[in-house]
Design a protein around this nucleic acid. Structure first.
Length: 405
DNA sequence: CCTCCACAGGAAGCGCAGGAGT
DNA sequence: ACTCCTGCGCTTCCTGTGGAGG
């Protein structure tokens, strides 16, 4: 980067941010912000509150299982209730400790346990001890503190998928080693199927209580957005229909409130960057495109080499004739693999790669029968060609391949 | 009505890496 | 330092199948 030109550019951007004409407080739209009111979740708050209230009376709360798709307010509700519980416990002098662990970030048994210990005030080295030793220390800390411990495992399916249900099984058994049971577990997941894959013993004891978070409908999303928008934006900067459009788009994607908030925030950011004094429906559409581009980029650029090659083969075929079938894709793919000097995977594997790309929402593969001419999958792209190519180019090997023609 | 294409997609197993137990 | 175990990406081998053309 060279000197003065880019500095002036930055100066301009920075000063525009400082005197934002759009946002009052952008963080109110951030996914991490926990609002003081959670509309349409009164029932879930009351249920969870009733369960955890046992801890205030000196009993062990039941374990609970919380399900709901992404963006249905699970994490926000749990954090909200825990915070209130913590306040109340302090107020009436009852020892309650809360450990909140996000299992997507802390995705091994060791890391989860060390976070739990950390919340009890026990520091452990980030590596070096055996898992069994961590459990021993946990038991000792609990005996010493005599506190109720509530462990919240958010996105619990991540650890379990990777490491099986040992973690849960052993955590649940800790109560047996204590003079009185004092560990409660709250599991949160957005994968409804994964519950069935649990050990039946774990399943039954974790599922003592179950709380379901249904998706929000468009009307509810609209109300949520209006409330947040009034905190985040300056008065009257939102055009008519902006909130309605965000709500409608997110409602179509299984009522995901996070998505709705993202749209609104990015639309505001785009409006601001353009120096506009208002946020328009047009800005929302741009925001939708940008979010989609980011998603595709994120997914495609981290794909393994063979998946990228298969994807490039699909793009080439669609460029040439508007559609692609498995056989064609495979032969173009093997040719590409040859050109970059790697051995091709088998066709069987290639069909699995196609299915994976389908599940990631990059393309869409439909099984069709062409009668005499066999049965195959016809593949179309389900995200923009431009974004895909752009993301593929970040890979040196694939990039060279694209440059060549 | 039957055939037979061009695949889909299940089952089993292999080599490897990385992590746990000893 | 060593075995043992597990999950992952992949191959090999396989059976199943919707419907155009005979």
């Amino acid at each position: 980067m060279d000197g003065s030109g880019s500095f002036d550019l930055l100066e301009e951007v920075f000063s525009r941010v400082r005197e934002s004409s759009i946002f009052r407080d952008r963080d109110k739209l951030s996914p991490d912000y926990v609002p003081s009111r959670l509309p349409f979740r009164e029932e879930q708050i009351a249920r969870l509150g009733a369960i955890l209230a046992q801890a205030l009376k000196g009993y062990k709360p039941n374990n609970a299982f919380i399900y709901g798709l992404t963006g249905t307010g699970k994490t926000a509700v749990v954090r909200y209730v825990l915070e209130r519980l913590r306040e109340k416990a302090q107020e009436i002098q009852v020892p309650v400790t809360v450990a909140y662990v996000n299992c997507r970030q802390r995705d091994t048994e060791y890391r989860v346990l060390s976070d739990v210990l950390d919340s009890l005030g026990v520091r452990v080295p980030f590596t070096g001890l055996s898992i069994a030793e961590l459990y021993r220390r946990l038991v000792r800390a609990l005996e010493r503190g005599r506190a109720r411990l509530i462990v919240v495992l958010d996105e619990i399916d991540y650890v379990l998928r990777k490491h099986g249900d040992d973690l849960l099984y052993r955590l649940l058994r800790i109560n047996g080693e204590l003079p009185e049971p004092s560990v409660s577990i709250i599991g949160i997941t957005n994968d409804l199927n994964f519950v069935d894959s649990l050990d039946p013993r774990v399943k039954s004891s974790l599922g003592e209580e179950e709380i379901v978070f249904p998706p929000y409908n468009a009307r509810q999303l609209q109300a949520i957005l209006e409330e947040r928008a009034s905190l985040a934006f300056k008065n009257g900067v939102l055009d008519e229909g902006v909130i309605g459009l965000c709500a409608a788009i997110a409602a179509r994607e299984h009522g995901d409130a996070r998505k709705a908030l993202d749209l609104l925030r990015v639309a505001g950011e785009i409006a601001e960057r353009e120096g506009s004094s208002r946020v328009t429906v047009e800005h929302v559409n741009k925001a939708r495109n940008q979010l989609e581009r980011d998603r595709v980029f994120e997914v495609v650029s981290t794909l393994p080499l063979h998946a990228k090659l298969v994807l490039l083969a699909v793009v080439k075929l669609i460029d040439a004739k508007g559609k692609a079938t498995t056989g064609e894709i495979y032969s173009v793919y093997t040719e590409l693999a040859g050109r970059v000097g790697v051995e091709a995977v088998t066709q069987r594997r290639a069909t699995d790669i196609l299915s994976e790309l389908d599940m990631l929402g990059i393309l869409s593969a439909r099984v069709v029968s062409r009668g005499r001419y066999g049965k195959t999958k016809t593949v179309t792209l389900s995200s923009s060609r431009g974004s895909i190519i752009e993301a593929l180019k970040t890979d040196d090997i694939i990039g060279r391949l694209i440059e060549e023609d």
